[in-house]
Amino acid sequence: MSNTPLPFDPALTIFMLVKTSPEWLGFSVDRRFELLGAEFTPILKKHADNVVLRFFDVEFYSTRVTDIWMWDARDHHSYQLLVEDLRETAFWDRYFDIVEILTGVENAYAKNYDRPVITA
């Protein structure tokens, strides 16, 4: 888990459940990182002031999805702009199948009732 503070207080968190495609797995590891650097990283940098990504590998424990991309977004519009850019790349439903998108608001139950957050 990252201890780096976010540059903003996220309005929403999005969990993208994705599955690597056979095409992606057919690339060498070096080629995968080249593609990430050439196509994916510039999008992350473009939206870095408003959207932050964390990667989770889950292929060790799941067959339905291989990775979870967790996005913290400053607001809905910033997230939507990020997705528009991603959809213009092969990372969206070619190299990775977007299996499901789950969007939530952290601790909304407490915020909505003006109550303290429950923690362990």
Score class of each variant (00 low, 15 high):
P7C: 14
P7G: 15
P7I: 14
P7N: 14
F8E: 13
F8A: 11
F8V: 10
P10F: 04
P10T: 11
A11P: 02
A11H: 09
A11E: 13
A11L: 05
L12D: 05
T13M: 13
T13N: 12
I14P: 01
F15L: 05
F15I: 01
F15E: 01
M16S: 11
M16L: 15
L17T: 01
V18H: 00
V18S: 00
V18I: 05
K19Q: 02
K19M: 00
T20G: 07
T20N: 02
T20M: 06
P22Q: 10
P22I: 09
P22R: 09
P22H: 10
E23R: 07
W24S: 09
W24I: 07
L25E: 14
L25V: 07
G26Y: 09
G26F: 08
G26C: 09
G26I: 07
F27G: 02
S28R: 07
S28E: 11
S28Q: 09
D30S: 15
D30N: 15
R31A: 12
R31M: 13
R31V: 11
E34F: 06
E34D: 11
E34M: 04
L35Q: 05
L35W: 01
L35R: 02
G37R: 03
G37M: 01
A38E: 15
A38M: 03
A38H: 03
E39M: 05
E39I: 06
F40M: 14
F40Y: 15
T41P: 04
T41I: 14
P42W: 06
I43L: 11
I43K: 01
I43T: 08
K46T: 12
H47Q: 12
H47N: 15
H47T: 13
A48Y: 06
A48V: 10
D49F: 03
N50E: 14
N50H: 14
N50D: 15
N50Q: 12
V51F: 13
V51I: 14
V51K: 14
V51Q: 13
V52A: 14
L53P: 15
L53R: 14
R54T: 12
R54N: 13
F55M: 12
F55W: 12
F55L: 13
F56I: 05
D57Y: 05
D57Q: 09
V58F: 05
V58K: 02
E59W: 05
F60K: 11
F60Y: 09
F60E: 10
F60W: 08
F60H: 10
Y61V: 04
Y61T: 04
Y61C: 02
Y61R: 04
T63Q: 05
V65Q: 01
V65K: 00
V65M: 00
V65R: 00
T66R: 00
T66N: 02
T66C: 00
D67C: 05
D67V: 03
D67Q: 06
D67K: 04
D67T: 03
D67P: 02
D67Y: 08
I68P: 01
I68R: 00
W69Q: 02
W69K: 00
W69L: 05
W69H: 03
M70C: 06
M70Y: 03
M70V: 08
W71I: 03
A73P: 10
D75N: 11
H77G: 04
S78G: 11
S78K: 06
Y79S: 06
Y79R: 01
Q80R: 12
L81Q: 15
L82P: 13
L82M: 15
E84G: 00
E84R: 10
E84A: 13
E84W: 00
D85F: 09
D85C: 08
